[in-house]
Design a binder for these strands. Structure first.
Lengths: 133, 133
DNA sequence: TTGCTCCTCACGTCACGTGAGGTGGC
DNA sequence: TTGCTCCTCACGTCACGTGAGGTGGC
């Protein structure tokens, strides 16, 4: 399996062993000790190859860059989640304002349910106000 | 000035010239061509020294890491701005809802503020119904 | 003159990758 | 046996830092 992975990553098999020793990759092992390389590991190897061969990083740089890229990725998704939440909140708030505004008129009308994300249950509103008679 | 900056950064003066040639730093120049190192540049040099000497990065790695760190910093501030905006919006919306509710008169009384997750709180409704009297 | 600056060239060191050498199981 | 795997050791190369050498202005 090491020869296949090395071929796929464009590297020398011995290089893969060295990278493993340095903790850059962690291939599985067969019961007999043969290294088994998953698709993920091969992708990581390609990424490393790109950094070392094309950009000229050394292995210390590769380690640091991989860590930083992971943090960047985490932050990206955090930011995306935040944007979703903000948009959601904005919409909900706008709906709430609209709903309450409507209730200023002659009648209070029931409004649609909130979605399934653990939001407070909708409240049924009396159709006529007590002093409206 | 190069000797002072080199001393401050713990480097050889010649190393500073090499870093400049590689585009890692950009010191000012006096009218006579002498390099002038600002505090910012010295800080950057210290950061580079940390990466090369302590972490063992080469210059290609330093370049990449510095770029990544800058992007991370930008993202951090973007995230912070986003959080501020969300909190602001939440407050504004809550105020709006409150204001409109008040204008309904005495009967509709909201209870409980919105919680931190931007979830709408249930609304307390007048107990009397038109047909209940 | 001394002590700084500017520059270029050359050497020493170290990290890294590759190859060789020797082993063992299908 | 062939062709793979496992491992360790050693060499070649290259990047990098340092020093030397020679210049010029306060």
């Amino acid at each position: 399996m090491i020869s296949v992975a090395a071929e796929l990553a464009g590297m020398h098999p011995q290089t893969l062993r060295i990278y493993e020793q340095r903790g850059l990759i962690e291939p599985q092992r067969s019961p007999k000790g043969t290294r088994l390389y998953s698709q993920d590991v091969v992708e990581r190897l390609r990424r490393i190859q790109e950094m070392t061969a094309e950009q000229g990083l050394n292995l210390a740089g590769v380690e640091t860059v991989l860590q930083l890229e992971q943090r960047l990725e985490e932050m990206r998704s955090e930011l995306a989640a935040m944007q979703r939440r903000a948009a959601e909140m904005e919409q909900r708030m706008a709906e709430e304002v609209e709903r309450v505004r409507r209730s200023l008129g002659a009648e209070l009308v029931p409004y649609g349910a909130y979605d399934a994300k653990g939001i407070a249950a909708p409240v049924k509103i009396p159709v006529e106000r007590a002093d409206a008679g």
